[in-house]
Amino acid sequence: MIRFLLFTFVALVCSTPVCRAKKPSVRIAFYNAESLYDTVSPPGSADGAWTPQGERQWDTERYRTKIEHIARVIDDLDADLIAVAEVENENVVRDLMFAMRSDYNYIHRNSRDRRGMDIVLFYKGSLFYPRRARLHAGPGLPREPLVVEGELDGTPLTLMACHLPSLLNRAADRRRALVSLRAAADSIREARPEHALIVLGDFNAAPDSPDPVRILSISPCPPQGRRRPPEKTETLLSPFFALSRRGYGSYVYRDRRCLYDHILLSPHLVADSSKLRYEGSCGIFVRDYMVHREGRPAGYPLRTFRGRTYLGGYSDHLPVFVDLEKQESE
């Protein structure tokens, strides 16, 4: 029953060819690409398994297949900005760029993650003009969030893309990461109060989980027609709150759907005065080729490996997105 409901949901979330908001819009997305390694293990790295001689037998053919698969998903998603996690290095970023049909620019920084997993931001230069990019270091953040400041279709914006510690880490470590993320968001808002803020990524926790709600001060986005921003300006708004409570997910953990990938918005993006406004269009992006179609894992994301068995899939995560609608000038 779980597998059937997962497949039914994701098919409904984004079933049209374009799956855009009705008005002209800007799409913001996040995708955990699941271990997008090349075939070379640099000295001192922890990715020896991802080589032709390693236990994954990660050769050029498997690497090229993975690149083509991730490129296909990004092309079909057609986001204007998309942050992609678990990308090993800039050489991989370039290979991905060459494989995509879409015309993107990119921002990449080398993190200190021991597995060599970075976050890259792909963006369409006709809409987004970056002015500053950096990694934010903090306690509990071995994979530093990528912070990019710029202007999105005339709206000042700071985007923070993160990949927080997994459930294999202690609960205290995960809470420390959330505290660091909250401190980063507060410092951004203090330094750039005129900027809209978008925090997106793999949080390894649902938006309605107790720790993220309490530490990040997450609230559901207000219903359409009630766009008055929350009185507490430190609040981050979640378009995915209701979806998570209804049991939908971008990832499957122990046969349970989990909305670990999601996107948070500052109150700027629901205010009547905003030139880009969230009006309710968000979801988990999927195509038939991205999930198992039959057997025991039917409806689960079609990943690259199950244990040590090579499946030749896409990722163990599905992308998530929000559409910000462009408002007509008065």
Rank of each mutant, 00 (worst) to 15 (best):
T235L: 05
V320K: 03
E88M: 07
R296G: 04
V148N: 14
S126E: 12
I284Q: 14
R94E: 15
H268Q: 13
R227Q: 13
D288R: 03
G299V: 00
G225E: 06
A99P: 10
E328N: 06
V322E: 07
I107M: 09
D211M: 11
A99S: 12
I218D: 14
N110Q: 11
I263T: 07
Y106A: 00
P52R: 12
T8N: 15
D103Q: 05
P267R: 00
A161V: 06
E149Y: 05
R56D: 07
R257T: 01
V84Q: 13
V73Y: 08
A184C: 10
R101E: 13
V87K: 10
M100R: 01
S238Q: 08
G280H: 05
D173F: 07
A83V: 03
E190D: 09
S111Q: 06
V199Y: 03
L12I: 10
A29V: 07
K22P: 15
Y106I: 00
F305M: 12
H69N: 15
F203N: 09
R303M: 00
S35P: 00
C221Q: 02
R132M: 09
G307V: 06
L265G: 05
V148I: 12
R112N: 10
V320Y: 14
D261H: 05
T16K: 06
S180F: 03
V92Q: 04
V213N: 06
M117H: 03
I2K: 10
L6S: 13
F305L: 09
P301D: 11
L77E: 03
V199K: 02
Q224Y: 06
L167P: 10
L168Q: 09
V291H: 00
L157H: 02
H136D: 14
D288W: 09
H262M: 11
E194L: 06
L302D: 08
A99C: 08
V13E: 14
G283N: 06
L121Q: 01
T304R: 12
E279P: 06
E68A: 12
I2N: 14
R134H: 09
K124Y: 07
Y289R: 11
V286Y: 13
P223T: 00
R143W: 11
A298S: 09
E144Y: 08
R303N: 04
R257I: 04
K326C: 12
T39P: 13
P220Q: 02
H292R: 12
G154S: 11
D208Q: 08
A71Y: 07
G44S: 07
Q224H: 00
S266Q: 02
P52L: 14
D211C: 05
H163T: 05
S126V: 01
A79P: 14
G313D: 10
T8W: 15
D186L: 10
Y253F: 15
A79M: 12
K275P: 15
D316A: 05
Y310K: 08
V320T: 11
P210R: 09
L164N: 01
L96I: 08
V291L: 15
P145R: 02
T158G: 09
G54K: 02
V291T: 09
A46L: 15
A191T: 04
A11K: 15
A85P: 03
F240Q: 04
E149M: 01
E294C: 04
L159Q: 04
V322T: 07
P24I: 00
R114V: 11
S102H: 02
S219G: 11
D118R: 00
S111F: 04
L265I: 02
M290T: 04
P207Y: 03
